[in-house]
Write a protein that binds this DNA or RNA. Structure first.
Lengths: 354, 354
DNA sequence: AGTAGCTGCACCATCGATTGTGCAATGCGA
DNA sequence: TCGCATTGCACAATCGATGGTGCAGCTACT
């Protein structure tokens, strides 16, 4: 019943133990002791005591005094997607390598949540924030600005802060062309038979749609209306859109441009309710890379966004202090069907199994 | 060039503005004003000023004073897996519904990192911690214990703290039987033709192996040695194990028990280098559910661990204060091939597309 | 009038660390 | 030996919020 939640040692404890003043202890333990001209032997004494008593600094106290916390935030729409979870993974490694502490949170694509969560992070005195895929980046910007918080958009751009995003237009063109190429191998594709599903009224969707249409016009010579069905970023609504198309047309289009892996989940939900042979002959292109998504029973061409570069670029901008509110494009990569790319987890060493 | 990073308003600012003392302002703004017998009109005055000046409490200062922070931690092995990212998603919702702030971090399965990251979280005075899939749960426990931090293991159990885990033995039996059933539809399965890949020397792997072997003995009447290849939790080493098996035997086994979706990624990496017809006839059972993994071109039977229940149970234990160091089993669910389950994202409302 | 009891708030120590400043002791050169 | 520079550290204010305690002013009752 050792219910003693032993109080953690403080600089005052070590001050008493060492016979030095708290300020000396503080200086020794935060590394500023040389410039404060503390004797090496004093430093060693205190460091020894600190180790012995398992001293660790109270970071809230430090943060209060310094009015910063050592925390760096990443605001995601959701965690549960390989795209965003790989972003979290990469972000975390990056932040740790700078000796800071990552805080990854998600706001469920709700503009109000986004702002409120950022308020909270600001209340904890986070030092910088990456705003990924925000529904209302400029709303978030206002909150950050009011608090003087460095921040950068990623994935979806805002107009008020620097943004690092994929070249969605170029990616969509690439993807569209690849779908056509893949379809055309046997018999030529009709322009109405290449349909885009997913996305909504955000910058990424608009750019992808633009790329899709331009590519169709260039490659198929036509871009009829009615070949685009926005569904939002929800598997359920996506599925309903596929069902709807299927009911209207008795089949799916031969070529499918799917706006994101979340929408692709809608497609497999649709599939789960339909026999396999509904999909012979189907060619899918999908934004976002998911390793399993790449190995579905029909060809899935994916666009892998370069998360590592985007995050790195975002940090570079944060380091700049006050970067211009412009958009930085990062080139995404076309991933042929049945391709297993390496991911952030491959950077980890895994100990040899027993 | 409004470079003024306006200092945030404090209770002292509002104190001056309102003509009340800082303690009154504090009481009003943290809700304790009724029990401090502050006049309603005073409260309204201060609340008005707070709203007008966009006051938000400095949570580091509050945390310092109260010696707790409102932060609740989740320690993951990695983010970039549907299993763990869905855990993060569920955890976050849970924490927010309690009015606290989630902090999700990953330690890459490195015992030393695990301890060090937890030390850091403790330095921020987090109030509770869920330790998910830790490589060294008892090491983490020691750190928490020394700081008097409430914590619960999840996914992988420890011996010193309460643990909520899947019933891996039962799940593995279910899965093994399901694989056999699926294989046996055409021609009976030889016991050597059902092989387990993945996992390492942790509780989950051991239980799954035990379930696998017992089920084989029961259903196939034999459980020859050499049908188990631990690979660790890395796609690359998993892939190498499949390659190795393939080279030795000229083919894969007909029935494959894959220890986790990470190991399944190893399988698709293997597949990427082999023609499709290497896998006709293959039946895979895989621990962890991944929506796309469920739709691969061969039957993949999955075990979905009940993350919602596990997290809920974990919070219940945390609320108990000092729960006994026992293991709580949660029953996982068998997921037939080509099944699209709903996930945490389905709880989100998505606004209708434009 | 005296007092008991309430109302409504102010005062002040405190949480743990940081940092500008002051000062005694020592060293050193002239 | 005097004076100045340097060394090595202590002091105390401060970051923003919290909560125990004290106390003036008013009411109500005897």
């Amino acid at each position: 019943m050792d219910r003693t939640a032993k109080k953690k040692a403080t600089i005052y404890d070590l001050s008493v133990l060492s016979g030095c003043s708290p300020s000396t202890v503080s200086a020794v333990l935060n590394g500023s002791w040389r410039q404060r001209r503390i004797k090496e032997s004093t430093a060693e004494l205190i460091q020894g005591l600190a180790a012995k008593h398992q001293y660790t600094a109270n970071l809230q106290a430090r943060g209060l005094r310094r009015s910063r916390s050592g925390l760096v935030g990443l605001l995601l729409p959701v965690h549960d997607t390989r795209y965003f979870s790989s972003m979290a993974q990469t972000f975390e490694a990056c932040v740790r390598s700078r000796g800071q502490c990552p805080v990854v949170v998600s706001a469920c694509r709700d503009p109000q949540e986004e702002r409120q969560i950022v308020e909270t992070l600001i209340s904890y005195s986070i030092e910088a924030l990456i705003v990924a895929g925000a529904t209302d980046p400029d709303g978030v910007h206002a909150v950050c600005e009011a608090a003087g918080l460095r921040h950068v958009n990623i994935d979806l751009p805002g107009t008020k802060a620097a943004s690092v995003i994929s070249d969605n237009y170029a990616g969509a063109r690439l993807l569209t062309e690849a779908i056509v190429r893949r379809c055309g191998a046997d018999r030529p594709l009709d322009a109405t038979d290449l349909h885009l599903f997913g996305g909504r009224d955000d910058h990424a969707s608009r750019e992808r749609i633009r790329g899709f249409r331009d590519a169709k016009r260039d490659v198929l010579g036509a871009d009829p209306d009615g070949c685009i069905t926005p569904t939002g970023y929800s598997p359920t609504t996506s599925r309903l859109a596929f069902e709807d198309y299927f009911e209207r047309n008795g089949r799916l289009p031969r070529g499918l441009f799917v706006n994101s892996s979340i929408n692709l989940e809608g497609l497999i939900r649709f599939m789960a309710h339909h026999p396999n042979d509904t999909f012979t002959d189907l060619v899918v292109g999908c934004y976002d890379y998911d390793p399993f998504g790449s190995f579905l029973p029909f060809p899935v061409i994916m666009i892998r966004q370069d998360v590592e570069t985007m995050i790195a670029r975002a940090f570079a901008l944060l380091d700049e202090g006050r970067p211009a509110a412009r958009i930085h494009l990062v080139t995404p990569e076309l991933v042929p069907p049945r391709t297993a790319l390496r991911g952030p987890l491959d950077a980890l060493k895994d100990e040899a199994p027993a």
